[in-house]
């Protein structure tokens, strides 16, 4: 580990990480937030708070789920300055991109989000991967989680896997593990793209 990396990992140890998952209602973002928070809180022993905001509709409408992960007590449970933002549609990208920290990362769906702001962005075909490669568009949330964790390493893949398995419906474990795998692969592609 280079000194720069070491300093970064030490910083990460004391900092709190603020993540927002956004898109439209019905995309499973609240479940994704819950899985992320559970992976951090239960399987990694950190503190985590997950909150959400959604409209009165059952489907459609704007939906967001927020997760704060920290090694110390979390008081105010909502995010203020984001480290990571997942945007699955243009509306949520436009609405929330300015909440990112200067060095924060926007992870956007490359098909749904056409216009991205001039900040650190990785655009990946999250919905398309869920639909075409995993075979179920419903797994967009898990593909996205895989990509987000692969890029951010805010928790370990092993913890994420455990949390996914404990929360998805019975009989869909294989499907969701495959979604996770595709998400992690996307993250690898995304990293290259960021380095370029």
């Amino acid at each position: 580990m280079s000194p720069k990396q070491a300093a970064k990992s030490q910083k990460a140890q004391f900092q709190k990480t603020e993540i927002r998952l956004s898109g439209s209602g019905g995309q499973g973002l609240i479940l994704a937030g819950l899985i992320l928070a559970e992976a951090a809180a239960i399987y990694e022993g950190k503190n985590a708070v997950q909150t959400q905001s959604y409209g009165p509709e059952a489907r459609g409408g704007a939906s967001k789920s927020e997760v704060i992960i920290s090694n110390t007590e979390i008081l105010y449970p909502k995010t203020t300055r984001l480290d990571y933002l997942l945007a699955l549609n243009q509306e949520s990208c436009d609405k929330y991109a300015h909440d990112l920290k200067e060095d924060g990362l926007l992870l956007a769906d490359s098909d749904a989000v056409e216009h991205v702001p001039p900040i650190k962005v990785i655009s990946l075909p999250l919905v398309r991967t869920a639909r075409d490669k995993v075979g179920r568009i419903m797994t967009t949330n898990i593909v996205s989680l895989g990509a987000l964790v692969g890029l951010s390493q805010v928790i370990s893949v092993a913890s994420l896997e455990k949390a996914v398995l404990s929360r998805v419906p019975k009989g869909t474990e294989e499907l969701n593990l495959s979604a996770l795998k595709y998400g992690l692969e996307l993250a690898e592609e995304g990293k290259k793209y960021l380095e370029e």
Binding site: Q50, I74, P77
Partner: peptide, 9 residues
């Protein structure tokens, strides 16, 4: 609502 829907350890 904030407490009701918030998830914590």
């Amino acid at each position: 609502e904030a407490i009701g829907h918030m998830r914590e350890k």
